[in-house]
């Protein structure tokens, strides 16, 4: 059992998400930085699909009800155990009753806390992820909340000396496959995406990364009949500022999608702070 001592700005339970329910209007959810989530699990000997905690900028603090093995990955942040500094990016032994705290991210946005055995809240539709769009899955963490833990894996945690981390994202560079609705835009629109005049907006969240910059010019007016949306879709609302869909994106939408960023390239988008430049590299 973990007891939440400090919930942080937005801390949620996340795993690899729920697929196969988009036709019922259920977003996939799941860790935004999948690489960091998987790494945290591997460090404590969990399977990669075990549920972790995903923090947002300001970290969180939890008290362990029993001795546990834990690891912190993703956005680098000060890690303490009962106030004493501990390592980021490696397995830590947390004594029973001790408080493990993730401080404010030094850079990046989302840190991941894995505990051996995984966070064992009841799965909903095959996943323990909180999806903030539809409210599916457990509520975001609140102070005093108690989170059950699964049985720790028999395998010992992976021994590593150092985990490399990608470093701060100075410019977010994302491959973009044009379509399916690039024909709704002037040819200059794709060039504008490639030219990189956009910055990450502070208005983004788990649903989408919002951008500020030049408005993309449309050549077709009117509404697009609602159509299915994929992870990584770059949707352009009427204000012309592209929105990059992340894990909690709506399953259907009526604004045209000018292009799609491959899902495997979205981890860095989850760690990019507001104000950072965004540039798209067009793929054929």
């Amino acid at each position: 059992m973990l007891t939440v001592v400090r919930a942080g700005a937005l801390t949620t339970v996340q795993d690899l998400g729920r697929t196969g329910y988009a036709h019922l209007g259920v977003p996939r959810g799941g860790a935004l930085d999948q690489r960091a989530h998987r790494l945290a699990n591997r460090l404590v000997g969990n399977p990669e699909e075990a549920a972790t905690l995903e923090t947002t900028l300001t970290g969180c603090a939890v008290r362990a009800g029993r001795a546990v093995v834990a690891a912190v990955t993703g956005a680098p942040c000060p890690v303490t155990v009962d106030g004493r500094p501990a390592a980021w990016g490696r397995a830590l032994r947390i004594p029973a009753g001790a408080v493990l705290e993730l401080g404010t991210a030094v850079y990046g946005v989302r840190s991941y806390l894995a505990v051996a055995g995984g966070v064992a809240v009841p799965p909903v539709l095959g996943s323990r992820s909180t999806d903030v769009l539809s409210g599916t899955g457990p509520a975001p963490l609140a102070e005093g909340a108690r989170l059950p833990l699964g049985t720790p894996p028999p395998a010992p945690p992976v021994a590593v000396d150092a985990v490399p981390h990608p470093g701060p994202v100075r410019e977010l560079v994302l491959p973009l496959v044009p379509g399916p609705r690039d024909d709704w835009f002037a040819p200059e629109a794709l060039r504008a995406l490639a030219a990189g005049g956009f910055r990450v907006s502070a208005a983004g969240n788990r649903i989408g990364l919002r951008t500020e910059g030049p408005a993309l010019e449309r050549v077709r007016e009117g509404e697009l009949p609602s159509e299915g949306m994929v992870l990584g879709a770059v949707q352009v609302p009427p204000d012309g500022r592209p929105v990059l869909f992340l894990a909690d994106h709506p399953t259907t939408g009526g604004y045209p999608v000018i292009g799609v960023v491959p899902a495997r390239c979205l981890d860095s988008a989850a760690q990019t702070r507001p104000g950072t430049r965004v540039r798209f590299v067009l793929r054929g």
């Binding site: 196969g20 036709h23 994929v230």
Partner: peptide
């Protein structure tokens, strides 16, 4: 295929 998503005038196949 991971998802088959019908909508107003389209069907999306994803995955």
């Amino acid at each position: 295929v991971a998802e088959i998503v019908p909508a107003d005038r389209t069907v999306l196949l994803d995955g």
